[in-house]
Amino acid sequence: MSATPTLTERAGALFHRYANPGRFLRLGVKLQPWLTWPALILSVTGLVWGLFFSPADWQQGDSVRIMYVHVPCAWLASSGYFALAVCSVLSLVWRHPLADLAAVEIGPVGACVTATCLATGSLWGKPMWGTWWVWDARLTSVLVLFFLYLGHIALIRGFDDPQRGYRAAAILALAGAVDLPIIKFSVQWWNTLHQPDSITLRGAPTMSHAMLWPLLVCTLGFTLGFAAIVVARLRAGVMESRIRSLLSSPRRNGEADTSGAVGEYAA
């Protein structure tokens, strides 16, 4: 070991401050209401606003209201997968135990959101485009994302030794992250039936402010809701691994647990 810590080491030390599952449980309890309640209030506000108080589109009529659920789900499908990829780097490089548990919990939530994105998109496409589904680059790349989520869910639970599952699933998640830029830029690189993004970093949104605000409120609400559900599931996951380690080391109470993922409980 060198005398001056490298950047990787310092980053690792920073991550490990929050790797301790006991510390995470205490943080999670405090964090939970700050996620849950704003998520609920913002989502309900945004959905009611979008459904009853925002204007209908000049050519799409009221079906444009599907946007207020479709777009937040699409955003979360991609950013949920991005979170999965970040957990995978933490897991592969720093062997971060909490990142492994987080990856286990993000997967199913992300898959549900992606499925909702595809379903609501289909429900929007039928009356507007005239078809439930078309194999264009945007729709296909999001379908691939859905299968990546399913593969991750299966892989991370597919091994008797959870550590091997974490490793394999992390590699899959990182490899699949290639799909994220493809989804983002599919509507620019190729011609598609799906329209390009209305909200971009460059230029004004090509959307009336009367529609933009409820959309932003919905997106923020859904994002906080996603975080709230993941934090709640992760708290449960941490407790479950604590239960497993208690059950697997029967007569060793009072000593530090040495079993697997949540080894540094007492640290």
């Binding site: 204007p55 209908a56 589109d57 000049w58 050519q59 799409q60 444009v64 946007m67 507007m128 485009w129 005239g130 078809t131 078309v134 039936l193 329209q195 390009p196 993004d197 209305s198 090509t206 959307m207 009336s208 009367a210 529609m211």
Partner: peptide
């Protein structure tokens, strides 16, 4: 089969009418 492709522009009916009336746009 014919599919309609809509663009990324979303605007209320009234705004679209105003733009057309003012001669700034003909859909």
């Amino acid at each position: 089969e014919v599919l309609a492709k809509h663009d990324e522009t979303y605007m209320p009916k009234e705004v679209a009418e105003a733009l057309q009336k003012s001669g700034k746009w003909d859909p």
